[in-house]
Design a protein around this nucleic acid. Sequence first.
DNA 1: TAACATTAAATGTAATTGTATATATTTGTG
DNA 2: CACAAATATATACAATTACATTTAATGTTA
Lengths: 149, 149
Amino acid sequence: MKLEDEIKQQKFKNEYQKVAINIIYTESWLKGLQLTRFKKHGVSSQQYNILRILRGQYPKPATVNLLIDRMLDKNSNASRLVEKLRLKNYVERTICEDDRRAVNVAITQKGLDLLEKLDSMEDELQKELGSISVAEAKELNRLLDKIRG
Amino acid sequence: MKLEDEIKQQKFKNEYQKVAINIIYTESWLKGLQLTRFKKHGVSSQQYNILRILRGQYPKPATVNLLIDRMLDKNSNASRLVEKLRLKNYVERTICEDDRRAVNVAITQKGLDLLEKLDSMEDELQKELGSISVAEAKELNRLLDKIRG
DNA sequence: TAACATTAAATGTAATTGTATATATTTGTG
DNA sequence: CACAAATATATACAATTACATTTAATGTTA
């Protein structure tokens, strides 16, 4: 459905303003889709994001700094999220011996198991994005990459 | 810059997963751009969103319900945001006589003045989106509209 | 019209996040 | 080497948000 009709605003200053609003609106729509699914497994989408990064590193650990660097939402508080994941035994934290200011965070087997469940959830999600073709998805990715300059 | 390089994740399950992550990442990038600008004027992007909707209606008022319906972020708490705007005299609230459960919210002259200042800020923002052409922006809007089904 | 369901908005509470600051460690400089 | 600056992380506190519940008004229906 067209953005104009979704938010009932027919006029935009120009195509760029519309893009900005459209990205924010679409992100909110997307998070809405993810939300209920994630909730079932007791993790937030940010916690999921951290777990995915850690799996990408596995079996190497990552420092909190690296997590902040790669997280989708730069504003969120990585060390607090890590602590929450640790309390649920999804990650382990050890002080980094090379640089004792830093902490190594590694995903546990339990964390990997959880991710596997969440992956199937992602399959469902992707079905909901199927209203565009693979070629269109590629083009969308290209444009999003380009707009960030 | 390509998403792969920004978040240093080279592999994605498929193009759709990448689109989902790309939208979330780009939205976060965009909000980052807006943030410092909004802060100068003491409003959040959600408060700005409400003011814009009210200006769209001006001089007609809007009910809280209509605000929720049109807001970009459906989860936010419209009545509390309206109250904050009211405390700063950017909006007025009156009980709706036709349906006494509802409230009419209208933007004040002071609110309109603020928006005008914020508009020039938007011009700056749009310069930062100029790395894509108008035609590409149109295509991006089309694809975002389409992906939401 | 009495009883119940629905709707609009507000609010209490807990969780999350933003901002600034603190702590510990390491790096760089004279 | 001493000492200031920078870095990695944690945390205190305030603001914001999510979720559930409450209040008040309106609709519905038997």
